[in-house]
Amino acid sequence: MAPPLSLLVALLVFSYGPGGSLGCDLSLDHVQVSKENIALLHQLQRISSFRCRKDRKNFALPRDMVDGSHFQKAQAITVFHEMLQETFDVFGTEHSSAAWNTTLLHGLLSALYRQLEDLGTCLKPEMKEAESALGMEDSTSAVRRYFQGIHLYLKEKQYSDCAWEVVRVEMRKAFSLSTHLLERL
């Protein structure tokens, strides 16, 4: 089974590689928006990560970059869209609203929503291709399982401040890895 990050890599390679485009009009610069998301996630910090070291968890986001060139463009777009949607869902909960500064949280949710809308315009024309993409269901399922682990962790920890801090750091890592990859292309 392909790890979720490898699919994100595939999206970024297809989207921003030499001469490459998504085949649709993307009005957002995903590198800039991802940088803004990282900054917002950094600003959301309310407690020290060191204080929450006993609550750390490995959510199985791969640290190494794998070659995602064998994935189809539509598959990568679909998986990246799923990752954004799941991130939006994590931070869009009632529990999240109670944990964070609402102004910063709304800024993050707004940026995620803009990216989702932008990528949503790309999904429609690509859906026929995506339907035939081998392994797409497995790939999006892997993303869902990754985020299901995050949801279960928060619930298990009763949405504690430390649990939210661990999740905030995890999401910063995911956005940092994708932004770093975009900048290398």
Rank of each mutant, 00 (worst) to 15 (best):
M1S: 12
M1C: 12
P3Y: 03
P4N: 01
P4Q: 00
L5H: 14
L8P: 01
L8W: 03
V9C: 04
A10S: 15
F14M: 02
G17N: 02
P18T: 01
G19H: 06
G19T: 02
G19L: 04
G20D: 00
G20S: 07
L22I: 14
G23K: 04
C24S: 04
L26H: 03
L26Q: 08
S27L: 06
L28R: 08
L28Q: 10
H30P: 10
V31G: 10
Q32N: 04
S34N: 05
S34G: 10
K35I: 02
E36K: 11
E36N: 14
N37M: 11
I38G: 00
A39I: 14
H42F: 06
H42C: 07
Q45I: 06
S48V: 00
S49N: 01
R51T: 15
R53G: 01
R53L: 08
K54D: 05
K54F: 05
K57P: 00
K57I: 02
L61W: 15
R63A: 11
M65G: 11
M65D: 15
M65Q: 13
M65K: 14
M65H: 12
M65W: 10
V66Q: 13
D67K: 05
D67Y: 07
H70A: 11
F71Q: 15
A74Y: 02
I77V: 15
I77D: 00
T78S: 15
F80S: 05
H81K: 06
E82K: 08
E82I: 00
M83D: 00
M83V: 15
L84T: 00
F88D: 09
F88P: 08
D89Y: 02
F91S: 03
T93I: 00
E94I: 11
E94C: 06
H95I: 00
A99F: 03
A99P: 07
W100V: 08
N101T: 14
N101Q: 10
T103N: 07
T103K: 05
L104T: 15
L105V: 05
L105S: 06
G107F: 02
G107Q: 09
L108R: 04
L109K: 08
S110M: 02
S110A: 09
A111K: 06
L112V: 09
Q115R: 06
Q115G: 09
E117K: 07
D118F: 03
L119R: 12
T121Y: 12
T121C: 07
C122G: 00
L123D: 01
K124V: 15
P125M: 02
E126I: 05
M127E: 12
K128I: 04
E129N: 10
E129R: 10
S132I: 06
L134T: 15
T140L: 08
S141A: 13
S141W: 02
A142F: 10
R144G: 14
R144F: 11
R144E: 11
Y146N: 01
Y146A: 02
G149R: 08
G149Y: 00
I150R: 14
I150G: 13
H151E: 05
H151V: 01
L152V: 07
L152H: 13
Y153S: 03
Y153F: 15
K155N: 08
E156A: 15
K157G: 09
S160T: 09
D161H: 13
D161E: 11
C162F: 01
A163P: 06
W164P: 06
E165P: 04
V166P: 02
V169F: 04
M171D: 01
R172Q: 11
A174W: 02
F175M: 13
L181D: 05
L182F: 14
L182C: 11
R184F: 10
